[in-house]
């Protein structure tokens, strides 16, 4: 009897948490599928209608452009971070030299830095080099702020690679870059996946740099564009919901296909 009571209370907690975490998504998707009049008639009925018009109108309003911008800047920034992050992690994790510890700590402490502490100087710098209000204004800040966590993950992983492999390659006359390129990098794939996922999701959703460095719609990324939609859709709730659904879709799809990797990636090295 006590056992059954216990089970029931566990199920109740589980279901309450499912509603708490999942309901807003159901509400968003089901509202996106309603037209204006059915939204006002029955705003809370779940999946009472199935209407794709909102999605079409969202695309017509320029969401495609924001989408493309976001994907482009995210892919380029993450690609650069993976490469130069791995390069820097190699000596930091596998060589002894004087400033090793200092340089390492300088990089790592960047994880704790509030972006605001760099915002005004980066804004001025971007203006001065003539990148203000272009998509590429975001590249430098995105790379720089992704480096700390990436180097943290990569150095942790590289320390585990046995030294013997490296020595064998050295015997064969490999240069340091040769060792890095042919020995270390191929073994790094799992760590690079973590770096890729973590940074992709964070940069795809990044807001404050975009807000400060970009003002015209043609250069906007998705989060910034969404915020702009808010004004246009202030009366059209289903339209805005359609935009939100579409904006959340890519990451949710990636998640559903490789759940374990995404969870591990977002744990950012804390979760092994």
């Amino acid at each position: 009897m006590i056992n059954i009571m216990k089970k029931i209370s566990l199920y109740i907690i589980a279901i309450l948490l499912l509603i708490f975490t999942g309901y807003p998504f159901l509400y968003m998707i089901s509202t996106a599928l309603k037209d204006q009049s059915s939204f006002f008639e029955k705003p809370f009925a779940l999946f009472s209608s199935f209407n794709l018009e909102n999605f079409v109108s969202v695309f017509e309003m320029g969401l495609t452009r924001y989408f493309f911008n976001s994907i482009l800047i995210t892919v380029v920034a993450v690609g650069v971070v993976m490469f130069i992050g791995a390069l820097a992690s190699y000596p930091l994790s596998r060589m002894n030299f004087k400033l090793n510890r200092v340089v390492f700590l300088l990089f790592i402490s960047g994880m704790m830095l509030p972006i605001h502490a760099t915002l005004i100087p980066i804004f001025k710098l971007t203006e001065n080099i003539g990148l203000y209000d272009t998509l590429w204004a975001l590249l430098g800040p995105y790379i720089a702020f992704s480096l700390p966590i990436s180097i943290f993950i990569l150095t942790q992983f590289m320390r585990e690679i046995p030294k013997a492999l490296e020595e064998a390659a050295k015997m064969d006359g490999c240069t340091h870059f040769g060792i890095f390129w042919r020995v270390i990098l191929p073994m790094l794939t799992p760590a690079l996946m973590t770096v890729l996922i973590y940074n992709f999701i964070h940069l795809f959703n990044e807001f404050i740099f975009a807000l400060v460095l970009i003002s015209s719609p043609s250069s906007m990324t998705l989060p910034l564009g969404l915020q702009d939609f808010k004004g246009e859709f202030s009366v059209n709730v289903p339209g805005l919901m359609a935009a939100l659904t579409l904006a959340s879709l890519p990451i949710l799809v990636i998640y559903l296909f490789s759940q374990e990797k995404v969870v591990k990636g977002l744990g950012g090295g804390a979760v092994k």
């Binding site: 948490l17 499912l18 807003p24 805005l240 919901m241 939100l244 969870v263």
Partner: peptide, 22 residues
């Protein structure tokens, strides 16, 4: 539970904000 509990952390903060405002 494993899948759904994690959903909120994946959505962009901007989208979350707009959704909850509504």
């Amino acid at each position: 539970m494993n899948s759904v509990y994690f959903f909120p952390f994946l959505m962009s903060t901007v989208a979350i904000g707009l959704l909850w405002v509504l």
